[in-house]
């Protein structure tokens, strides 16, 4: 290949990337040159190298930039493998079947312009299938194949690796949720008008699903970080999420402290207000806290490779 061709390729790639990168990296463009200079001077003494390196080491923008680079690669990887298509196609189809056909005629039987069936179905699909599928490979596969070693010995922090992978999985979940939005749009806006839909609960419901995914994916990242096997990561994640969701169903029959505790930790109980069109701050905080705690544990678990 001639050098001119390399240029062409570079430019192709540049074109598609600049638009995405611009917002995220505008402020960093000044910075980028710093470590470079340091490297060019590689022949120079260690002392000359040190202060320049220290500048970029303290920069928070590095964190954004590296996380972004890793997240972008991960998202590409999802679409390069079958995972993305299987997950999106499978769950959209599953949703359609449940929505229109199951439970004695489904949507048509209810005879109301309501999307509540979607919000009954989606948490289950997310918990037992979607989230485990998109998180299982995140760290487990990299550990098994050894690519993690090459990734981590680049100048990136462990936290950037975890966050990059987390956001990539979250983007996948968001794309999936976006796809399911086609149902209400097609039914109530265009091309069909099956009734006057109250859009309020639909938006809060979707926000709830997104928060649900955020927490679930963090749980998945945690399990993916403690094993080298995707299968084990899948089942641990699916099992845990299913458990956290299902315990909500027994709340009604339990009184007192036990019931309160279960209501407190259950994903289902936390998700219900969103379904009804309420924005429950406590639930928002709950889902975000779960995400942060699980990501911290995943981070520690990744770091533990150093000591064992």
């Amino acid at each position: 290949m001639s050098t001119a061709e390399i240029d062409d390729r570079d430019e192709d790639l540049d074109d598609e990337e600049t638009s995405e990168e611009e917002e995220a990296e505008d402020e960093e463009s000044d910075r980028e040159t710093v470590p470079l200079e340091a490297k060019k001077k590689s022949g120079g003494s260690a002392a000359a190298h040190a202060p320049k390196a220290a500048v970029s080491e303290s920069g928070g923008t590095d964190l954004v930039r590296n996380t972004w680079t890793i997240a972008r690669r991960e998202t590409h990887a999802y679409f390069d493998s079958l995972v993305a298509y299987v997950v999106i196609g499978g769950s959209t189809l599953g949703l359609g079947i449940y929505f229109f056909l199951m439970q004695s005629g489904g949507f048509w039987q209810v005879d109301r312009a309501s999307m509540s069936r979607l919000f009954e179905f989606m948490p289950w699909a997310l918990a037992v299938l979607v989230i485990p599928l998109i998180t299982m490979r995140a760290l487990a596969e990299e550990k098994r194949s050894g690519t993690l070693e090459l990734l981590i010995t680049m100048p990136v922090r462990d936290s950037e690796v975890i966050l990059g992978k987390y956001f990539a999985a979250l983007v996948m979940a968001a794309i999936l949720l976006g796809t399911t939005l086609l149902y209400p749009i097609a039914m109530f806006m265009w091309p069909w008008h099956l009734g006057a839909l109250d859009w309020g609960p639909v938006w809060t419901g979707y926000l709830g699903l997104l928060l649900f995914s955020a927490a679930g994916i963090a749980v998945g990242m945690l399990f993916s970080s403690i094993t080298e096997s995707q299968i084990i990561a899948f089942f641990l994640t699916a099992g845990t999420l299913l458990f956290l969701h299902i315990i909500g169903s027994v709340v009604e029959s339990l009184q007192g402290v036990v019931g309160d505790v279960i209501a407190f930790v259950s994903f289902q109980t936390r998700f219900q207000p969103f379904e009804r069109g309420l924005l429950d701050t406590r639930a928002v905080i709950y889902f975000l806290s779960i995400s942060i705690i699980c990501l911290l544990v995943a981070f520690r678990s990744l770091e533990s490779r150093k000591w064992t």
């Binding site: 590689s42 590409h76 390069d80 050894g146 070693e149 090459l150 100048p155």
Partner: peptide, 22 residues
Amino acid sequence: EPLAVRRSLGYLPQRAPLYLEM
């Protein structure tokens, strides 16, 4: 200073574990 160390290094691990789909 692990980051500074990694910046001044090029490392090729055993068996070159690369991302195969790229």
